[in-house]
Computed example of a mutant assay.
Amino acid sequence: MSRIWGKPEWSAEETRRRFQAEQRELSPMFVPEESLDNDDLSQISNDTIMSTFLPPAPKRRRIATGRAAASIDNMGSSLPSPVVSPQTMRQPPVRVKSEAETEALAKLYLKPSEQRVKIYVGKNNTVCEVGLEDLEKSPVLKSLVNSTDTSKPFIMHPELTVILTDHFQAVREFLLTDEYMPAMMDNPKGQAIFPKLLGDCTTIEDYRREALRGAHLYLIAKGLAMSGMQDLVFRKITTAQYREYGIKCLLDMAQVVFSSPQKSVLIGKGKSKAVEGDNGSKSKIDGNGDPLEDWLIQMLGSKLRRVMIDHAKQFFKVAENGACLARGFGIRVLRWKVNFWDEAGQDVIPIEDDD
């Protein structure tokens, strides 16, 4: 044996002898190859070798079923019971009808078929049925009633197929009850205190979702010449802001409102171009400017500093949209800010917006 660089080196015979000695110490069943002939090697069973060196098989895990699973749930375990299907635990959201809508539908189905009108809306032509006299609230829908078969009147129009069925359900509810859910409620601090509340809305996301939905309903009511519903939607958006919408939600609403066509195809079908309000006078919606557009311009113009700092990308994306650009959305917001400081006068020193 020689030592080079402090490492021992053995001959092949010495290395083999040391290896067999180590194997003999580690495994008592080790037998040197030179002491066995071919017959002895064939007598060693493979089962013996496998059972000696392989680890034992893992034990099967016990699963509680039946009454045992129920007892685990009663003990407050976070694991769901195996007898309960996960699909039954996830129910889709169900639209709950108001009491007024339920009563109106009950009265509607008691009427003869010639006094009920079927309206086909959505891409799947979903049927929404209302009374013939309910169409007095919408001159446009009234003018679209098919008069070829007076026993089964119906309404079909290509413009109605692009309206979402969920949105038109609110229109149908207003035609039947002069209201749509969620209803506006008084502030907990008093009846004359603003902002108002919306029923079933508790979180900020609930109010933002209803505001964006209200923007769509506003345009639908405007296209159907339903001034009563248009006024109601506008009041809910502007006065029932119990939770602040935020700039992003306002910009999303602006994109919906300003990207709509200025003149609806449906409103040209109506027999009455000047829609009268409930009190017999012309509705405020038919003024020179659209109330919801003016309100959005005012809200974004009053928060222009925050818009440009935190939401500039979204603002210019909406402003450069084809329809919004044609309607002058971005210019109107900036012009509102300029007019605001012009009216304030030179004695007022602008520091920052009152956010």
Rank of each mutant, 00 (worst) to 15 (best):
M1I: 02
R3T: 14
W5Y: 12
W5E: 14
K7Q: 11
S11V: 01
R17Q: 12
Q20H: 12
R24I: 03
S27F: 13
F30W: 15
P32I: 02
L36D: 00
D37M: 04
N38K: 06
D40K: 11
S42W: 02
S45W: 05
N46M: 07
D47R: 11
D47C: 05
T48K: 08
S51C: 06
S51Y: 07
K59T: 08
R61M: 07
R61Y: 05
I63V: 14
A64Y: 10
A64M: 10
A68Y: 04
A69E: 09
L79N: 09
P86I: 07
Q87H: 06
M89C: 09
Q91L: 15
E99M: 09
A100I: 00
K111G: 01
K111C: 07
P112D: 14
R116P: 01
G122T: 03
N124V: 03
V127H: 05
V130H: 05
E133W: 07
L135I: 02
P139N: 05
P139V: 00
P139C: 05
L141T: 03
L144Q: 04
T148D: 15
P153T: 10
I155M: 08
H157Q: 03
E159S: 12
D166L: 11
F168T: 01
E173Y: 02
T177K: 10
A192N: 15
L198H: 01
G199C: 03
T202W: 08
E205I: 06
D206V: 06
R208I: 02
R209I: 01
G214W: 00
L217Q: 02
L219H: 02
I220K: 01
I220V: 15
A221S: 15
S227Y: 01
L232P: 00
F234Q: 09
K236D: 02
T239M: 13
E244S: 13
E244A: 15
Y245L: 14
L250D: 00
D252C: 08
M253I: 09
A254G: 05
V257L: 06
S264W: 02
S264C: 04
G268F: 00
V275C: 04
N279H: 10
S283K: 06
S283L: 06
K284L: 08
I285L: 13
N288G: 01
E293I: 00
D294P: 00
M299P: 00
K303V: 00
R306S: 14
H311M: 04
F316N: 07
N321V: 01
N321C: 09
A323D: 12
C324R: 03
C324M: 09
F329R: 07
G330Q: 03
L334Y: 06
L334A: 15
K337Y: 06
W341C: 03
E343D: 12
G345F: 09
Q346G: 11
Q346H: 04
D347Y: 06
V348F: 08
I349M: 10
E352S: 13
E352L: 10
D355V: 14
